[in-house]
C-alpha cells in the first residue's frame, strides 16, 4: 500500500514539475536526450521464476548503466496502470511491463503512444487489436514450449502401444496454461496411442500439483506420463507418486516446463525426465531492445526468448550454475 501511495505522490509531484517545465517552453521532456531512463512494471513476486526474472532485468540494466525505474504491481492490474501512468508523467524514454492480465490495456497504452513513449511487453502478451500500441513483445512462446514437451514425448514413447497421459494445468485461463496445453496437444495429435485421461489445474503450485496428482492416482490406475505446466506442480506430483509407492521418472514419466533450480535438481536425480526451459532471463535481450529503440532503430514485433530444453545429463551439467 505504501508503495502505491509513494508512487501516487511521486506522480503528483512530477505532474507539477512537468507543468513548470512546459510553462518554460521546454518540450524535450524531463528525461533528457542523452540519459536513458526506462520504467518497468513487474507483475509481482509470485514465484521463484518471477523473482529470477526481476533480478535478471535489474542486473542487466545496472550492468548496461541504464537507469531503471522499477515497480511491483503485486498482481493487480490497477497498480500496473497507475505505475505506467506515472512513468508517462515522468516522461521516461521507454516503458516495459509484464501485463498482469491480457485485456484492458488499450487506454493506458494509447496514453503512452500519445506521449511518444515506446512500450515493450515482456513475458506476457496483451490482447489489443491495435498492435501499434507496443513496439515489441519479448517473451517465451508458450505454444512452442508445449510442442517441445510433446516432441520429447513422441520420441520417448516411440515404441509404446498405449500411453496414458495426465496433465497438471496452470492457473485456469492464464496464457501459459492455455498455450502449453495447446502446443502439447498439437504435437501429439498425430498419434492415436496418446490419450490425455485426466487434466486438472494445479494452480502452478506444489501443493496443488500434489493434491491433484493424488486424486489422479486413485481414479486412474495406469498412468504412464505426467505433463506438468511448470516444475512446481511436477515436484508436487513426484511426492504424490512416491507416496503411492511408485517411482517417479521410472514407473511414471514426468515432463515439465520452466527449468527452475528445484526442477533441475529433480531432473538430475532422475525423478523428472525432461524439462522444457522457460527462461526468466530476459534482461540482456530487453536491454538490447531498449537501446535500439532509443537510438531510433526498429525492433521485431515478436522476439522469442532464447530458450532450450534439458535432459538429465544436461541438467547435471547446468545445475551448478543455475541461479534461480
Amino acid at each position: 500500500m505504501k508503495k502505491i501511495l509513494g508512487l501516487a505522490l511521486t506522480g503528483a509531484l512530477l505532474v507539477s514539475m512537468v507543468g513548470c517545465a512546459a510553462g518554460g517552453g521546454d518540450e524535450s521532456g524531463g528525461g533528457g536526450d542523452d540519459e536513458l531512463i526506462v520504467g518497468f512494471s513487474q507483475v509481482g513476486a509470485e514465484s521463484g521464476w518471477r523473482t529470477a526474472n526481476t533480478k535478471d532485468i535489474q542486473g542487466a540494466f545496472e550492468e548496461a548503466g541504464i537507469e531503471l525505474k522499477f515497480s511491483d504491481a503485486q498482481g493487480k492490474q490497477e497498480n500496473q496502470i497507475k505505475a505506467i501512468r506515472s512513468y508517462i508523467q515522468q516522461q521516461v524514454d521507454v516503458i516495459a511491463f509484464s501485463p498482469v492480465v491480457e485485456s484492458g490495456w488499450d487506454t493506458v497504452l494509447n496514453e503512452a503512444k500519445d506521449a511518444g513513449i515506446p512500450v515493450v511487453l515482456t513475458d506476457r502478451a496483451v490482447d489489443s487489436e491495435d498492435d501499434t500500441l507496443y513496439e515489441s513483445f519479448l517473451g517465451s512462446d508458450f505454444i512452442i514450449e508445449g510442442e517441445r514437451a510433446g516432441a520429447w514425448v513422441l520420441e520417448e514413447f516411440a515404441d509404446a502401444d498405449v500411453v496414458n497421459v495426465v496433465e497438471l494445468q496452470g492457473t485456469t485461463g492464464a496464457a501459459p496454461a492455455n498455450d502449453r496445453a495447446q502446443g502439447f496437444r498439437d504435437a501429439i495429435a498425430g498419434e492415436d496411442k496418446f490419450e490425455i485421461i485426466a487434466s486438472q489445474t494445479g494452480d502452478f503450485t506444489r501443493a496443488g500439483g500434489k493434491q491433484v496428482m493424488e486424486a489422479f492416482l486413485k481414479s486412474n490406475p495406469d498412468i504412464d506420463l505426467v505433463y506438468a505446466h511448470n516444475d512446481d506442480m511436477g515436484l508436487g506430483a513426484i511426492e504424490a507418486i512416491e507416496a503411492a509407492g511408485l517411482v517417479p521418472g521410472t514407473d511414471i514419466k514426468i515432463v515439465t516446463v520452466d527449468a527452475v533450480k528445484d526442477g533441475m535438481q529433480a531432473l538430475a536425480d532422475g525423478k523428472i525426465n525432461f524439462i522444457v526451459e522457460c527462461s526468466p532471463l530476459l534482461g540482456a535481450q530487453l536491454v538490447d531492445i531498449v537501446t535500439t529503440l532509443h537510438d531510433g532503430g526498429s525492433v521485431e514485433k515478436r522476439i522469442v526468448t532464447e530458450e532450450t530444453t534439458f535432459t538429465q545429463e544436461q541438467a547435471i551439467e547446468a545445475l551448478p550454475d543455475r541461479q534461480y
Binding site: Q169, T172, G173, A198, S199, Q200, T201, Q211, V212, E214, A215, F216, K218, S219
Partner: peptide, 15 residues
C-alpha cells in the same frame, strides 16, 4: 469437494 473435482474429472474451467 476439492478432491471430488479432481477425481471425477470436472473441467478446470467449471471447477
Amino acid at each position: 469437494l476439492t478432491t471430488t473435482v479432481y477425481s471425477i474429472g470436472i473441467a478446470p474451467e467449471i471447477t
